[in-house]
């Protein structure tokens, strides 16, 4: 991780200042509200011989909610996992093309995926808290990144940011696994935002939850988009329509068929295939 840390201020992924100094980072972002923060340019993804994504190009705007919808196996989760290089964990996975994070291609040799993931956090489909206390779950990212000052305050802020504080403030040192499914997922969101990332990727974060917990997560996502860029994969078209500013429709075969403002996607889709999908003719 040191190699990318040392790679200089010209490299936005490697520079630590923007995240450590929260206030200036936030004000920067506030003035450039709809700037592109992540841009994919001709991304192809292969699992061994199989091509999972074909020539994906899209610009994800900063501090907005971008939803990715599509039928099962269309590659939307694969694309999400490309943005923070979680696909590096899969041996047979190969990514061609470029994904730029603030103008820097994250697949360049001098980008350390560990540093990248400190800028781009992730929440998974199944809540996956660590078998540790609630406090230690949230403090985990701060601890491994060596940011141990004001730990209590940061943990409290993260739990408040994830709308979980009131429910757990009296039992911070009990196991995170004792929480309900919805609480566990909000704990995972608290864990992700505790390290103050710039982008939060969410891979169907509510699909394992009941309707009430889902509604809480959806409210939370709208809250989060004030401070963070949120990219969310969902199966649920109504969810995408409710919470997102932009929607990308992936269809079988790993194509990005349409990407536009959410209203236009749902009210006036350009492509017949997207219209068929959205009106429930298939998928």
């Amino acid at each position: 991780m040191t190699s990318a840390d040392d790679s200089g201020t010209a490299d936005p992924v490697g520079s630590t200042e923007s995240v450590v100094d929260t206030s200036s980072g936030l004000s920067d972002r506030a003035t450039t509200r709809s700037d592109t923060i992540v841009e994919a340019k001709g991304v192809d993804v292969f699992y061994g011989e199989d091509q999972a994504l074909q020539d994906i190009s899209m610009e994800i705007p900063e501090k907005q909610v971008t939803a990715m919808i599509g039928p099962s196996g269309c590659g939307k989760s694969t694309f999400l996992r490309c943005i923070n290089r979680m696909n590096d964990q899969i041996d047979v996975c190969r990514v061609d093309g470029e994904i730029e994070f603030r103008g820097k291609n994250i697949y360049d040799d001098d980008v350390d995926p560990v540093v990248l993931r400190r800028r781009i956090g992730m929440v998974f489909q199944q809540p996956n808290p660590f078998p540790k206390s609630i406090y230690d779950n949230v403090a985990y990212g701060l601890k491994i990144q060596g940011k141990t000052e004001d730990m209590d305050q940061k943990v409290e802020n993260a739990l408040k940011g994830a709308a979980l504080w009131d429910e757990v403030k009296d039992k911070l040192h009990t196991s995170g696994l004792d929480l309900s499914g919805g609480q566990q997922q909000r704990l995972c969101i608290a864990r992700a935002i505790a390290v103050d990332p710039q982008v939060i990727l969410m891979d169907e974060p509510a699909s394992a939850l009941d309707p009430i917990a889902t509604a809480q997560i959806e409210d939370l996502i709208e809250e989060l988009s004030r401070d963070f860029t949120v990219v969310i994969v969902t199966h649920n078209m109504q969810q995408a329509a409710r919470i997102s500013d932009k929607t990308a429709v992936f269809l079988t075969g790993g194509e990005l068929v349409e990407f536009d403002d959410t209203n236009r996607i749902f009210e006036n889709p350009q492509s017949q295939r997207v219209e068929d999908y959205i009106t429930g003719k298939f998928g």
Binding site: M86, R117, G121, F124, N128, P129, R191, A192
Partner: peptide, 20 residues
């Protein structure tokens, strides 16, 4: 899933093994 949670929080492989 627990390992992935750790990697996604920006942990290195050894940190993931040691801490989680």
């Amino acid at each position: 899933s627990v390992r992935n949670g750790s990697y996604a929080t920006g942990a290195t492989k050894w940190q993931t093994i040691k801490e989680v």
